[in-house]
Design a protein around this nucleic acid. Structure first.
Length: 363
DNA sequence: TACGATT
């Protein structure tokens, strides 16, 4: 299956040259304002297929695009989804905004109409006081216009200490220009050092060295230590905390397990998904008739890389038949999800969660 | 109600 990528939203997805918007087949300015969403803070390793799978679980997608670096192909951590039905766009915002996926809390909101005036409106800020948080930074900049996104970079080791640098994206480039004029070289109240405010580089303008450094930093964080809290069971409250952005207790896990499928001890009666379907297939039993794919994303996402979810429905009634499947990339994360979610009470039902078995290989 | 696949 090849994913169709329709470039209707290319203009917004790129600051680079040649990114001209393409009108869709209606031969007129389509009003996408009620169907077109932007998704921010996606996990870096999420693929186009996973992106489509997650948002396709809400409703029929007209087009979607995970935005990637033009040179490296690396995900830039955001994408666009255009639904056929405005109600599905609304539903996606309501059910997927704030969803915790690995270490990220994704943001789902309506995309702004594509236009030249919103391009190149991203600012890079440095020499910020280390005590300044995101909200305070936004307050400082908000006098110059509407802030779309903001971020303060944190120390890689502590995961929370500010590095004194950040990004601010305004709605309009003019606003960003005004913020540079007003704030570059200025000392925030109580600060000892003036801040630097300038336009951010486009990702594709990174030097080869910077790209290598980036790739090294993002692949080197593969911890080899033993798992902690292996027997911990997560209950409703901890899942809710995760959903609302509290750091997942599992976020220390490596994104890619060094353990290969072949090296894992074979579990009695458990047959693993074949090599063509990468990942670990999990059987989830006792879902309600109303269960949908998003509940499976919500439940399993906090434990690690989920590549696919499926709720099995009766073809005629379209109600869930009481079970579903979840595919996770890494054994450790799948095992943790099973240990934590088996016996988990969802509403008035107690879930039974295990690796999927295969009748073929039994006895 | 227990191990899919209407892509």
């Amino acid at each position: 299956m090849v994913t169709q990528i329709i470039s209707t939203m290319e203009t917004q997805a790129s600051n680079g040259p040649g990114s001209v918007g393409i009108l869709n087949g209606t031969n007129g300015a389509a009003d996408d304002s009620k169907t077109n969403l932007i998704v921010n803070y996606l996990p870096q390793n999420m693929t186009q297929e996973e992106f489509k799978s997650l948002f396709g679980s809400i409703g029929e997608i007209e087009s979607c695009k995970l935005v990637r670096d033009k040179i490296t192909g690396q995900s830039l951590g955001y994408g666009f989804v255009n639904y056929v039905d405005p109600n599905d766009a609304d539903k996606a915002i309501n059910t997927l905004n704030g969803l915790k996926l690995q270490t990220k809390t994704i943001k789902v909101s309506y995309a702004r109409p594509s236009s030249a005036s919103i391009r190149d409106a991203n600012l890079y800020v440095s020499s910020l006081p280390k005590t300044m948080n995101q909200k305070e930074m936004e307050q400082l900049f908000s006098q110059y216009g509407r802030i779309i996104t903001s971020r303060i970079l944190v120390d890689q080791v502590t995961g929370s200490v500010s590095r004194g640098v950040g990004f601010i994206r305004f709605d309009k480039r003019i606003e960003a220009e005004e913020a540079i004029k007003g704030l570059n070289g200025q000392k925030p109240l109580g600060a000892s050092e003036p801040i630097t405010v300038k336009f951010a580089n486009n990702p594709s303008q990174k030097t080869g060295q910077a790209l290598l450094t980036h790739l090294y930093q993002t692949t080197a964080r593969r911890y080899t230590g033993p798992l902690h809290h292996q027997t911990q069971r997560f209950r409703l409250d901890s899942l809710i905390n995760m959903a609302y952005g509290v750091k997942s207790p599992l976020s220390f896990l490596p994104r890619f397990s060094p353990i290969t499928i072949d090296s894992v001890t074979n579990l009695a009666g458990v047959s693993l998904t074949g090599p063509t379907t990468a990942g670990w297939c999990i059987f989830v039993y006792n879902l309600s008739p109303e269960a949908d794919e998003s509940v499976l994303w919500q439940l399993f996402g906090p434990f690690g890389a989920v590549t696919n979810v499926k709720v099995i429905r009766d073809f005629t009634t379209n109600k869930c038949k009481g079970f579903g499947f979840v595919t996770m990339t890494n054994y450790d994360e799948a095992a943790m999800a099973i240990a934590s979610l088996n016996g988990y009470r969802l509403g008035d039902r107690v879930l039974q969660v295990s690796f999927k078995t295969s009748k073929q290989h039994k006895a």
